[in-house]
Amino acid sequence: MAANSSTFTLTTPSDREIVITRMFDAPRELVFKAITDPTLIPRWWGPRRYETIVDKMEPRVGGTWRFINKDADGNEFAFNGVYREIVPPERVVQTFEFEPMPGHVSVDTMTLEEVDGKTKLTSRSLFDSREDRDGMMQSDMESGVRETYDRFEELVQEVQKNQRAA
């Protein structure tokens, strides 16, 4: 599966957006099923070092979701939102709020496309303002910045390669 890691891209097409893409070796029906199944969320959502608890997940229009991340010391922080659109097996639109930063809500549109028997996932997060987006990036959900640019990744990789070589 390591091959798919290299398909990860992160771009900022505008001041208020972050777009992530990633390929998966599975038909999109299956990818859709996996990401909308509450029993599977704890097994993949968030970094491995956190436990993910599904407090609520109602994948239907108007339904809500709330996931809790818990670290080894028992610290908890939660995320929540409302499902706006669920179109199997191609699209989910939902709001996303990091509870320690209430009121800064993004609208996340996830689309699945089939490409040569594989599935391309595109996740577009739209924030109310650039400040909100950057605030989210700098929040201590250890997200870092959600920024990068077309060609930026290859630039950075190139730089790092050159530095290693030097």
Partner: peptide, 11 residues
């Protein structure tokens, strides 16, 4: 990316 790798395993 870590989330997606775990999703790879599930798929």
């Amino acid at each position: 990316e870590e989330s997606f790798q775990r999703l790879d395993e599930i798929l």
